[in-house]
Computed example of a mutant assay.
Amino acid sequence: MKSIDKILTRSELVQQVNDWKAQGLCVVFTNGCFDLLHLGHIDYLEKAKQLGDKLLVAVNTDASVSRLKGPERPLQDEMSRARIMASLLFVDTVVLFDEETPYELIKAVMPDILVKGDDYALENIVGHDIVLQNGGEVKTIPLVKGYSTSGIVDKIRR
């Protein structure tokens, strides 16, 4: 399978997740900008994959990243970021989302496990309410200290 084949539209993703669930597989959901892939991302995504059978990664579109991080971001376009995510062995599928948060996407796919980094309190993780109401779990993963895209950008600027 080519990495580009792992990038799905929202409707394709919903069908894929339904197929996985019908097979009794545990679906893990996470999201982010993933603007410059670094060790922190790799460690986080590997650990997220270990929580279930299939790892779904929602990636912010360029417009969404700019709204969140400012006009100088993203550094890489959305298809580059999505392809890089999809090329990782432990990532099973990737979808782009343009909204401010992935709430509607989480609602549409209803993952078994919703995951974010431990810089989030559980009650601040977008979608925690609907996942918990539907019998799913919300978990945080310890982040590798000293790794962030913003930190890398600052280092390059210096």
Rank of each mutant, 00 (worst) to 15 (best):
residue 109 V to W: 06
residue 63 A to F: 02
residue 69 K to Q: 14
residue 131 V to L: 03
residue 75 L to P: 00
residue 89 L to I: 02
residue 95 V to R: 05
residue 52 G to Q: 01
residue 100 E to K: 15
residue 97 F to V: 11
residue 129 D to Y: 00
residue 91 V to M: 03
residue 112 D to P: 04
residue 121 A to F: 11
residue 51 L to W: 02
residue 113 I to L: 08
residue 71 P to D: 13
residue 77 D to C: 12
residue 132 L to C: 12
residue 65 V to W: 01
residue 106 I to R: 02
residue 127 G to F: 08
residue 132 L to F: 01
residue 74 P to R: 08
residue 59 V to P: 04
residue 81 R to W: 02
residue 126 V to R: 13
residue 102 P to N: 00
residue 128 H to F: 03
residue 72 E to Y: 04
residue 128 H to S: 10
residue 107 K to Q: 11
residue 112 D to F: 04
residue 61 T to Q: 02
residue 87 S to K: 06
residue 92 D to F: 13
residue 130 I to W: 04
residue 128 H to P: 05
residue 85 M to T: 04
residue 135 G to H: 07
residue 99 E to I: 00
residue 131 V to M: 07
residue 78 E to W: 10
residue 134 N to T: 03
residue 126 V to D: 12
residue 81 R to D: 08
residue 63 A to D: 03
residue 119 D to C: 05
residue 56 L to C: 14
residue 70 G to I: 13
residue 123 E to H: 09
residue 119 D to G: 03
residue 79 M to D: 11
residue 64 S to F: 03
residue 133 Q to C: 14
residue 114 L to G: 06
residue 134 N to D: 04
residue 68 L to Q: 14
residue 132 L to E: 12
residue 55 L to S: 07
residue 51 L to Y: 06
residue 61 T to C: 09
residue 81 R to A: 06
residue 96 L to R: 06
residue 79 M to S: 05
residue 130 I to V: 15
residue 102 P to S: 11
residue 72 E to F: 10
residue 90 F to E: 14
residue 101 T to K: 09
residue 108 A to E: 13
residue 79 M to E: 13
residue 74 P to T: 11
residue 103 Y to A: 08
residue 102 P to T: 00
residue 54 K to Q: 13
residue 133 Q to L: 11
residue 58 A to C: 01
residue 124 N to W: 12
residue 59 V to R: 01
residue 82 A to N: 06
residue 88 L to V: 10
residue 70 G to H: 04
residue 96 L to Y: 05
residue 107 K to G: 00
residue 98 D to T: 00
residue 85 M to Y: 10
residue 57 V to E: 02
residue 132 L to M: 15
residue 94 V to E: 15
residue 123 E to A: 09
residue 88 L to Y: 14
residue 91 V to C: 07
residue 94 V to L: 12
residue 102 P to G: 00
residue 116 K to Q: 15
residue 90 F to N: 12
residue 84 I to P: 09
residue 76 Q to N: 15
residue 96 L to F: 01
residue 131 V to E: 03
residue 93 T to E: 09
residue 84 I to R: 14
residue 83 R to M: 11
residue 133 Q to K: 15
residue 116 K to A: 14
residue 128 H to I: 12
residue 56 L to S: 07
residue 73 R to F: 06
residue 64 S to A: 15
residue 121 A to N: 11
residue 84 I to G: 13
residue 103 Y to I: 07
residue 98 D to E: 14
residue 50 Q to S: 14
residue 91 V to G: 09
residue 134 N to M: 02
residue 134 N to F: 01
residue 73 R to L: 07
residue 101 T to Q: 05
residue 103 Y to H: 11
residue 72 E to R: 13
residue 59 V to I: 04
residue 127 G to D: 10
residue 56 L to Q: 07
residue 118 D to T: 06
residue 99 E to V: 00
residue 90 F to P: 05
residue 103 Y to G: 02
residue 115 V to N: 09
residue 116 K to C: 07
residue 110 M to L: 14
residue 81 R to E: 03
residue 107 K to P: 04
residue 64 S to Q: 08
residue 113 I to T: 08
residue 132 L to Y: 03
residue 88 L to R: 13
residue 108 A to F: 00
residue 50 Q to M: 08
residue 50 Q to H: 07
residue 126 V to C: 14
residue 124 N to I: 02
residue 111 P to R: 04
residue 103 Y to V: 12
residue 85 M to F: 10
residue 105 L to N: 05
residue 100 E to A: 15
residue 129 D to H: 13
residue 50 Q to N: 13
